[in-house]
């Protein structure tokens, strides 16, 4: 099966993505690896594909948007990096591949994903739920059971589809929704690209809900998974192999959640320790801290989320300011008192 595998990220996550792609290269050297980037190359940096662990970069302006800047401005960094997954996955179904797989840039493979490819022999869509079993402790119920009720049952740090049939139909539907409604707005029932997929098992056939604890293991489900090193030196999640880990929130917050739910599972901390080192090694000094090309207006004024929401809601502004990053729009916001003078 010809597989295209992609991740979506900005330069701030290039280090994590490199670790993911290295693990993909190791386990699946024959897969075509695409970096879907919503950003611009930082000044002074060169992105040399021959030195990167992926085969191709696709930029935001290659996704077929008529006015990509206007669309992009309406999203914050999380919204836009999840939104581009839709248009790209739809494009990918039209290329010369049998399957397309998405993995978040902060995931990493520890064993091959071959069983997914096998599942795609008979299924068109594979999703991984956040949680496989009910929780028992109150805190865990709040963190791990209630959270998916508003954020989405399935974690869209992973999805795999066939490029034909229901897979293709899903890709078109998802792309269309994400172009218009990839918003972080739980009060309106929206949580970026993820909440949408609660519809998938109903809207589409040939959907496989993967309940193997070896996939998409993270702090939100590790309390139900026993992570060990076996006698062969391999890492296991319960009775099977650990396939990939979702290293969500690299930093103090992630550490707190990991400690809360991994408890005394020492291998979990060893995995994190290793991952932290790998990310450090994969970090380019040329990428400024917290860099994102679309985090500020052309003149350097930081863009607030309120500016994005205003532009998203007001069609008159969209019609008047074709490029919302421009200094014209900054001047207007300033005149309106929406940017401090």
């Amino acid at each position: 099966m010809r597989v295209l595998c992609f991740s979506s990220f900005t330069f701030s996550y290039l280090n994590r993505a490199r670790v993911l792609y290295q693990s993909l290269r190791r386990h699946h050297p024959d897969w075509h690896l695409v970096a879907l980037m919503t950003d611009r190359i930082p000044e002074g940096m060169t992105l040399d594909l021959s030195q990167e662990p992926f085969d191709e970069v696709v930029w935001q302006d290659e996704l077929g948007f008529e006015n990509v800047n206007a669309w992009l401005f309406q999203h914050d960094i999380v919204e836009v990096c999840t939104a581009v997954k839709g248009p790209f996955i739809e494009m990918a179904t039209k290329r010369d591949f049998d399957a397309v797989m998405y993995l978040d840039p902060d995931t990493c493979l520890f064993n091959p994903l071959t069983p997914i490819v096998e599942l795609l022999e008979t299924n068109d869509i594979v999703l991984t739920p956040h949680l496989l079993n009910p929780e028992e402790e109150r805190t865990a119920i709040i963190d791990n059971e209630i959270c998916p009720l508003w954020a989405g049952i399935y974690n869209l740090g992973f999805v795999a589809i066939r490029t034909t049939g229901e897979g293709a139909r899903f890709a078109s539907w998802w792309a269309q929704r994400l172009r218009d409604f990839c918003h972080d707005d739980p009060a309106k029932g929206l949580f970026v690209d993820q909440k949408w997929c609660d519809h998938v098992p109903v809207f589409f056939d040939k959907v496989h809900i993967l309940k193997d604890p070896g996939y998409n293991t993270a702090s939100w489900n590790v309390s139900q998974r026993n992570i060990t090193i076996d006698d062969n030196g391999n890492v296991r999640a319960n009775d099977g192999l650990l396939r990939f880990w979702h290293f969500t929130k690299l930093g103090p917050l992630g550490d707190v959640m990991t400690r809360r739910y991994a408890k005394d599972q020492i291998v979990v901390y060893e995995l994190w320790r290793w991952y932290r080192e790998q990310v450090a090694q994969a970090t380019s000094a040329a990428v400024p801290d917290r860099y994102w090309a679309f985090g500020q207006f052309e003149d350097g004024t930081p863009i607030e989320r309120a500016h994005r929401l205003l532009y998203r809601d007001r069609q008159d502004l969209q019609a008047h300011f074709k490029d919302p990053f421009s200094s014209d729009f900054v001047a207007w916001l300033r005149a309106e008192g929406r940017i401090a003078a």
Binding site: I229, G233, N234, V235, L271, W274
Partner: peptide
């Protein structure tokens, strides 16, 4: 052993 996750970690 060489090449195992145990050693990698």
């Amino acid at each position: 052993r060489e090449g195992t996750i145990a050693r990698q970690l």
